[in-house]
Design a protein around this nucleic acid. Structure first.
Lengths: 354, 354
DNA sequence: ATTAATTACGTAAACGTTTCCGGAGATTAA
DNA sequence: TTAATCTCCGGAAACGTTTACGTAATTAAT
């Protein structure tokens, strides 16, 4: 109720406010005895400096903003964990904002953040976003921005991503080697460079195996979520010849599983599925899902580290600071080659047949 | 680089700083033409008020703090989603802190938050926490705190929880009705009221079915994580007579699955498993997991709503504002009664047998 | 002993905003 | 005409902190 601030401490100790402040900040021109006295009382009264006053004066908020499309998703929640970890180590605070894949929300948030509320921003852009002028808004104000995973290629800013082209290539290659020849590619907004690169990997692998590229097999999830759940199902009914699915995001892999259940398709016998995913339970699924797993936690840590390099130096950073981490292909039963073993598919078929 | 603040706007418009401020805040004593002029320029120059100056002056930060044990967990990430939603609607910002189940971290965070950085706090306590004096710290400063899910019963503060006793009862009852007689209960820190209530429900159901309570069957996950993964496995080897597992948290349900895999135990034939969980993929597991699912998103929304009632009224709230939401029992194959069908367990056994 | 350097602290301005107080000018009432 | 009211705006203080500058007292240098 009654705040304990520098004035209070100063009165109690018969010192000036300035001296108390400098003692707490461990400045050189304060004697050790005084420092001890001040700290003792500060501790006793549970003094905590007023963050807003301090931020206002220093023009430094000790806070970063994190803007992501969603949080109920293992990739982003792990990324947050990494970000929080690095922030805490630097004595920084983390503000979180969800764009819900909505460009307008993303824009509104960026506007808010342009007023000195944060010292830096980590952004993973919404799938809807096509205009990136809001990034300049922060730039003009001298607030460094680091993009991660869902990046925008056009701007000269640091980006932390994974090897999406290679991952897309390896995923498709894996399906091809398992015998698939009609491989669907389920993806999100193709305006995202991340989607484009995965797609390019997909195409390159097809070409390598002399499998013709079929536009009909590439389906893009629209921003409006409702139909996306049934997206794999409609595709699978339209094209019963599909024998492999490469899902560029976790949710599409899951709805592919559901679609196969509903349509009575057996995984991996009828359709093999591989998907980008950070699901901890991938190995417990029926059947266990082959995944491309991004190092989400490390991405978060890396992105935050790059940002802090900029924040402490108090200057903007360029694309030169960008990093690319490697994703991991984890082979499980959902892409098991049906020619290898005959026993296993039967069991799986039975398990799924109910 | 060059900030656009009230002074700048005032100079440009030949007005005083006070007038510009009042115009932007839509005060009654500013003429409409002036308001229009001010707003036009503010818009043109992308003016955003300095949050720290404003917070300092108004003694209101328009920010709440959220302190949770972890984020890579569907329950908490969904809760955050709900919290962010309500916060955004009230034009509030959300600071996030992870305690990592560590009391010291939780304490440190609460200390930081006691300095007027936030207008309110949402807390789900770490499993390690036994001392709750840090809650008083905020209370003394007049900062309202709302506990959710992992609450502490001892304090007179609002709590948003689920019907943990009933859920524990129903979960155990469900296993008993499915034929289980030796039911293990895997839980976390028993200092948490949430664990105690689930446990009480467990005991009550046992009593109702005249099954003796066996202390050995109740295992509590320690704070140090490493051994918790193998916790179900050691229990299942020590007590091969176990025919049912009730996991009070998602992670323990998952490690129970893994333990059964490793030990060659068939679910649900040898062991039936039910667990608290918000896994979206519960129905895709092998076998699909019967869950007690908490309305995590709603809990987040509700907790935030209660907090905002306190924040806008600028006063502390009491336990009277507490809410209890209902969890849902979702029956799936992991607790299927083995006497019902003979075909299904065979398939599942085969599927798991590899 | 006088001056210069050093130590340890106080004074006051500044950060950008909000708000109390007041005041000039216009309008109305008497 | 004078007084009262109202409308619209400016001056200045305040929020709690940091920091440039100043200064008295002590120590070192000459």
């Amino acid at each position: 109720m009654k705040p304990v601030n520098l004035k209070k401490l100063a009165q109690e100790l018969n010192l000036s406010i300035a001296t108390v402040s400098r003692a707490l900040n461990d400045r050189y021109d304060i004697s050790q005895p005084t420092k001890d006295r001040v700290r003792a009382l500060a501790n006793k009264l549970n003094y905590e400096p007023n963050h807003h006053a301090s931020s206002l004066r220093r023009n430094k908020s000790k806070t970063i903003g994190v803007v992501i499309p969603e949080v109920d998703n293992h990739f982003f929640s792990l990324a947050i964990k990494g970000i929080e970890e690095v922030a805490r180590r630097n004595n920084y605070h983390v503000l979180i904002y969800l764009s819900h894949e909505d460009y307008q929300r993303e824009l509104a948030v960026m506007r808010l953040l342009a007023s000195g509320r944060v010292d830096g921003v980590l952004l993973s852009v919404a799938s809807e976003s096509q205009d990136f002028a809001h990034l300049d808004l922060l730039r003009e104000r001298g607030i460094p921005v680091v993009l991660f995973d869902r990046v925008y290629a056009g701007k000269d800013m640091p980006k932390v991503t994974t090897d999406d082209y290679e991952s897309g290539y390896r995923a498709t290659q894996h399906l091809l080697e398992a015998g698939c020849r009609v491989i669907a590619h389920l993806t999100i907004a193709h305006t995202l460079s991340i989607s484009q690169r995965r797609m390019q990997g997909y195409q390159a692998a097809l070409q390598q195996f002399r499998v013709p590229y079929d536009e009909e097999l590439v389906v893009c999830e629209a921003a409006g979520k409702p139909q996306s759940a049934s997206l794999p199902q409609t595709l699978l009914t339209q094209r019963p010849d599909i024998d492999g699915i490469f899902a560029a995001v976790e949710s599409l892999a899951m709805s592919s599983y559901e679609a196969c259940h509903n349509l009575g398709l057996r995984i991996p016998k009828d359709v093999k599925i591989i998907g980008f995913s950070n699901l901890k339970t991938a190995s417990l699924l029926a059947p266990p899902l082959t995944t491309i797993t991004q190092p989400a936690y490390e991405i978060g840590k890396e992105a935050a580290s790059v940002l802090f390099q900029a924040v402490v130096k108090n200057r903007l950073v360029s694309a030169a600071q960008s990093k690319e981490l490697k994703s991991e292909l984890i082979v499980r039963a959902s892409t098991a080659s049906t020619t290898l073993s005959s026993k296993e598919p039967v069991a799986l078929a039975l398990a799924l047949g109910r």
